[in-house]
Design a protein around this nucleic acid. Structure first.
Lengths: 333, 333
DNA sequence: CTGAAAGCGCTTACAG
DNA sequence: CTGAAAGCGCTTACAG
């Protein structure tokens, strides 16, 4: 059925060892012999069995990718970035999800033990950082795509949450806003602390007044953006701009402002964070702080590949810059 | 380093054959012996190497999944559905993308030849249907998730494009609209023909008048929705509702209507197709025909698993029903 | 420059 | 009920 290295060897009149040599580009093979073997390979369409090669070499040329869910709006971008660079290097990508909770994680753990892959790319599923750290300390090459500002003790890729929020503050100052409000994400996330600090500090430095009553503790949902605006309005608070910690919350902010009869950006300017597709479809379109999601996936994959090739693993996070994307909800003047 | 079946056999004082027997649940093993072996397995945390098992058995317990891109708005849903059922059955998922065009496909073809996976789930990348059909005819179990209404000659999962569009027409009739417009998707897609027919026929049956000048040949982009509305308005055509072949185009329709000072749904009702996340974030929210994306992924995975277990493969597509999701752009009355 | 042989870690007839 | 041996399809010392 399947053509094997033995078939190729037979047809070329050489040993399997020699076929293996040309397959793996070892130099010390007679040019004519090599040529003949290559011809047979081409004729037969022979491709080495990845299972057999993996078993003999003790590695799979496959990378695992563990993510919480595939349906988050920005997940596709990160995945695509990672897959592109892994594929270009001939690596397979085994995809694992935590959609079914602990059962998923159990299944995943079995695959780890079965050494189904050589290294692991991970976006942390809820409460698994210790487990991942443990895998790393047991010798599995791991790179974390750190969407939450974890700063773990092993290789990771992150973005400039603090500087991104600072850029939002500077932009609001530059377009003449004086009384910003802020809708944060889930409080215990590192990225939320970083974004809060970056915005608060820079707002102060730019002479903006960030009234503590205008800081709303949100949870990254559209609903929290609505609620934040409604409560601030009900409290009679005055604000001329809103910085939300993610685009979904910013979309909620836009909706609530519209319902309250306020115009964006004339009455209130709005800035989000992430730059997910939704930012293009709100009314008005959303000015936001772009996370380099695809680039983070690519960088993480490259980092992992270099570890697999033996490069030392640094625990210092690789930090990629955010960028300000100006659209209609907070246009430049 | 790694504990092997030989280690377990030694510690349990039996042969590898016997360990293999309890590993694979063969019945004819002495209860005490089996118990002892299980203890050793638990103590050592032994898990069989998937590579070795795969080589010995000639199969990988892994399924390939080939998709055009990971960044399409509905891709995550389909993937998640497929991954959930494959994972629950202990299968690994190897993910392949066509983001880098022919080069990607070449890489993929190598993995096929290397028999990296036992079966394939595919959402057709541009112009690869013949190639996929060829893989199927060469004996690779394949299931197509048929987003385009291809009706290929091998197992596939699809949705009721025609009936979904018919439901849109019925809903418009039910809420009292008389002059609908339609923005189609790319003309040569099977699903576009099906949606056009379903809408046209049912509109007629319901007594709606679908003026040919109110049918705009679109391409599934937001821009085409805008253009359609602008041109119809510029031509002085009168319409009280729009059915777009996908949500993105419907979002464009909403934008252009707003810019033209028309109210949705008062002046014009709008219905989309797909029910992607964007449909929740437009203003107003979008009434749409939901495609059962996650269910299609699940069904395709189940179908593939049953083929892998030896069930005969039927070329008749498995068709899952769409459903009408009523939101603010075309509310019930 | 080339090949015979052992080994990677399992499974599976076959024999007892 | 159990085990020795061959085999899955490769790679890699080792010897020549």
């Amino acid at each position: 059925m399947r053509v094997t290295i033995a078939d190729v060897a037979r047809r070329a009149g050489v040993s399997k060892t020699t076929v293996s040599r040309v397959l793996n580009g070892k130099s010390d093979v007679d040019a004519d012999t090599a040529h003949r073997i290559r011809e047979v390979i081409a004729e037969t369409g022979y491709v080495p069995s990845s299972r057999a090669v993996g078993l003999a070499r003790g590695q799979a040329r496959t990378v695992g990718m563990l993510v919480p869910s595939l349906t988050w709006p920005w997940m596709g971008m990160v995945l695509q970035g990672a897959v592109d660079v892994l594929e270009a290097d001939g690596y397979g990508v085994l995809l694992y999800t935590c959609n079914r909770g602990d059962e998923s994680l159990r299944r995943f753990a079995v695959q780890v033990s079965a050494s189904a892959f050589d290294g692991l790319l991970v976006i942390e599923p809820e409460n698994t950082l210790d487990y991942i750290a443990q895998l790393h300390s047991k010798g599995l090459p791991v790179v974390l795509i750190d969407d939450r500002g974890h700063h773990p003790g092993f290789p990771s890729v992150a973005t400039t949450n603090r500087e991104g929020a600072a850029a939002a503050a500077r932009h609001l100052a530059a377009i003449g806003r004086r009384r910003p409000a802020m809708v944060t994400g889930i409080g215990h996330f590192g990225c939320v602390r970083d974004r809060s600090q970056g915005f608060t500090e820079t707002a102060a430095a730019e002479g903006l007044r960030l009234d503590p009553r205008l800081v709303f503790g949100g949870d990254f949902t559209k609903e929290c953006g609505r609620t934040a605006v409604n409560e601030m309005l009900a409290a009679g608070l005055d604000f001329d701009s809103v910085f939300a910690h993610n685009d979904l919350a910013a979309a909620g902010v836009l909706g609530a402002l519209r319902d309250a009869g306020l115009r964006v950006p004339e009455d209130v300017a709005v800035i989000g964070f992430d730059d997910v597709p939704v930012a293009l479809h709100t009314e008005p379109t959303l000015t936001t702080i772009r996370q380099p999601l695809r680039e983070m996936g690519e960088a993480a994959a490259r980092l992992l590949l270099s570890h697999l090739r033996g490069a030392p693993a640094s625990a210092d996070p690789l930090v990629l810059p955010t960028s300000l994307v100006v659209r209609d909800s907070a246009p430049s003047i």
